[in-house]
Design a protein around this nucleic acid. Structure first.
Length: 317
DNA sequence: CGTTTTTGACCTGCGC
DNA sequence: GCGCAGGTCAAAAACG
């Protein structure tokens, strides 16, 4: 049932993507902008677009402080997730009332408690040390895209390990945090559902894979794949179709996604037609060729055949 | 039994 | 300084 509904939605879907690779000229609808802003915390994008101030590249490459978070609104929706209780950190009152109990424990098991405290201290110090050594946590350029999908975690050819989930302000849907499971690869991605259209999954990649996709089909790996371009789009340096691997159980629910009917890419003017029938993995595979210059674009080797120039799309409308 | 997910706690940065 | 929201950690639970 749900799947059929999905299929019906596919063609009229308006998913969208933006990257830091030459997207200074990117065009999205008002509704999409709102969705993006609320879903991703890229509030700056709105201003950026309307004022035609700095390019998206500039926005995304800004120092962490400016675009890392969205803390603008004051409305707090009750999170609809089981772990929402994590927000209750402010309510220490009840805990403090246990002072008596704690004192008794202290007299009975003084040493144990002390040990525990010491351990916790050490843990905290460890954390602080680790963070100090990293100094200002460097935030990598990010790439976000929206995909119409029933499943939250879209298969993109890489293996991800979930390391966190948070309730998102103004959204009933939680945001999940994933890290690439490959050692020494610190690519992360965030996955959340769009507030305005729950059938849309917003995936934000951060960082750059330093390895090939573990489930990359040979046909894609061989020859066609040049070294990944620098920057966030390389996070998808070798995305794979959700092929006949162990990931197929995801794949069968992984709809054919269409992409923004208004999506453009700087001078390349590439737009994925809304009637397109490529899925996210293929789309990402295309993206990796959309580097700084036209040469990247032309390096498509046919993979971009279902992208059409924006003017063509407009004529069709 | 190894790997992944869940989830409460904690940290950081920002705005007021 | 405080509160809030985003992001991360890590122990425990769940899973294959």
């Amino acid at each position: 049932m749900k799947e059929r509904a999905m299929m019906e939605n596919v063609d009229k879907s308006a998913s969208l993507m933006f990257s830091d690779h030459g997207l200074s000229d990117f065009v999205i609808s008002e509704a999409e902008k709102n969705t993006m802003a609320s879903s991703l915390g890229f509030m700056e994008l709105l201003g950026f677009h309307q004022d035609s101030s700095p390019s998206l590249l500039d926005v995304l490459l800004q120092p962490p402080a400016s675009n890392a978070m969205d803390s603008s609104s004051e409305v707090v929706n009750p999170p609809a997730t089981p772990n929402s209780s994590s927000i209750s950190s402010a309510s220490n009152d009840g805990l403090n009332n246990n002072d008596d109990e704690q004192q008794v424990k202290a007299t009975v098991d003084d040493e144990g408690v002390e040990k525990q405290e010491q351990e916790e201290d050490q843990k905290t110090k460890k954390r602080l040390k680790a963070k100090k050594t990293n100094e200002k946590r460097q935030r990598q350029p990010r790439v976000a895209f929206m995909t119409k999908s029933e499943v939250d975690h879209l298969e993109d050819g890489y293996r991800w390990r979930k390391y966190g989930q948070k309730a998102v302000k103004n959204s009933p849907f939680p945001r999940s945090y994933y890290r690439c499971t490959t050692a020494s690869c610190n690519v992360k991605k965030r996955v959340e559902r769009s507030v305005s259209d729950p059938s849309i999954v917003v995936t934000t990649y951060e960082g750059q894979h330093n390895h090939l996709s573990p489930v990359m089909p040979r046909s894609i790996l061989s020859g066609v794949v040049p070294p990944p371009p620098a920057g966030a789009a390389a996070a998808f340096s070798a995305p794979a179709m959700p092929g006949p691997s162990s990931t197929q159980h995801h794949a069968h629910r992984y709809q054919q996604h269409s992409y923004a009917n208004n999506w453009s890419m700087s001078s390349n003017s590439a737009v994925v037609p809304s009637s397109g029938s490529i899925n996210a993995a293929v789309f990402l595979n295309k993206m990796r060729f959309c580097g700084p210059g036209p040469s990247h674009f032309l390096a498509d080797h046919g993979l971009l055949q279902d992208m059409v120039p924006s003017h063509v799309l407009k004529e069709e409308e």
